[in-house]
Design a protein around this nucleic acid. Structure first.
Length: 260
DNA sequence: CGGCATGTTTCGCC
DNA sequence: AGGCGAAACATGCC
């Protein structure tokens, strides 16, 4: 489930913890940086931010906790899940899948943790002072100039490049298909074949489509999503049968009619 | 049972 | 050297 949009939804929800002190922390050591527990207990959460798909808890200690969600991670804040509809998790939420639990003062009702990250597949991780320098520009605010620079000299297909967080940060598989669909670019196209007009359109699609999908609930709320679920259906823009193929190991869905 | 999954890192091969 | 694609990782679900 988690792409940059889900990270943004969770960032906002975790904002409810700003000003609280961390009284207790339990982690799954297999996905947590060594020593993190001792560093966070006793600290207060000063702010919560996001970079790409990473949610950042800024502490007064100081230091930063980075939450990365992999493919199946999700967040529960004060016992509430900010995203209810989980395509891959189908609502299951077993205690043995908890990878991080934070208790705070003030605390929510009962003895429940204020923040819990639950991740069955364990591809997510919890880091201390994550290095964010290598990340590309933010997809949700991507300018044409930033995209042009990010793609300069690259010859690979545009779809896998958009998924590379060093090139652009925040896009996942569903959103990458969505912005290519919206800007009329075929996913196999090599980056150096894009015209200036296409680059402008693609950057704009990142801003407008991601904003629209965020309002509608996240990365499963794109125009392609209903078709995607039911098998590659028809293009919501022109009705042509959608095509599905694996590109660089990930499923791509596109419209052969208007994506050239 | 086989195949697939909203992600990242690592490994060979150009 | 640097970029690319495939494989690996770990686990649940259809």
């Amino acid at each position: 489930m988690p792409e940059g949009l889900e990270a943004e939804i969770w960032r906002e929800a975790i904002g409810a913890l700003v000003g609280r002190g961390i009284t207790r922390c339990e982690v799954d050591r297999r996905v947590t940086e060594d020593g993190l527990v001792d560093l966070v207990v006793g600290a207060s959460i000063e702010s919560v931010s996001r970079r790409g798909k990473v949610v950042l808890l800024h502490l007064d200690t100081p230091g930063v906790v980075g939450l990365h969600f992999g493919m199946t991670g999700r967040v529960v804040v004060d016992g509430r899940s900010p995203i209810e509809r989980l395509a891959y998790a189908s609502g299951a939420d077993r205690p043995e899948w908890d990878r991080l639990q934070l208790w705070t003062q003030p605390s929510p009702a009962g003895a429940m943790p204020a923040l819990r990250m639950n991740d069955p597949r364990r591809l997510g991780h919890v880091s201390w002072n994550p290095d964010l320098d290598a990340l590309g520009p933010e997809a949700s605010a991507l300018t044409a100039a930033e995209l042009r620079l990010a793609l300069a000299g690259r010859t690979a297909s545009i779809k896998p490049l958009l998924l590379d967080q060093h090139v652009v940060a925040g896009l996942g598989n569903l959103c990458a298909d969505e912005v290519l669909h919206a800007s009329g670019i075929e996913p196999h196209r090599s980056a150096d074949s894009l015209t200036p007009t296409e680059t402008v359109a693609l950057a704009r699609a990142c801003r407008t489509r991601l904003a629209a999908m965020l309002r509608r609930g996240g990365s499963t709320s794109g125009r392609l999503d209903p078709e995607r679920r039911a098998g590659p259906g028809n293009c919501p823009l022109d009705g042509a049968p959608l095509r599905r193929a694996s590109i660089a190991g990930r499923t791509a869905v596109w419209c052969p009619q208007h994506q050239q």
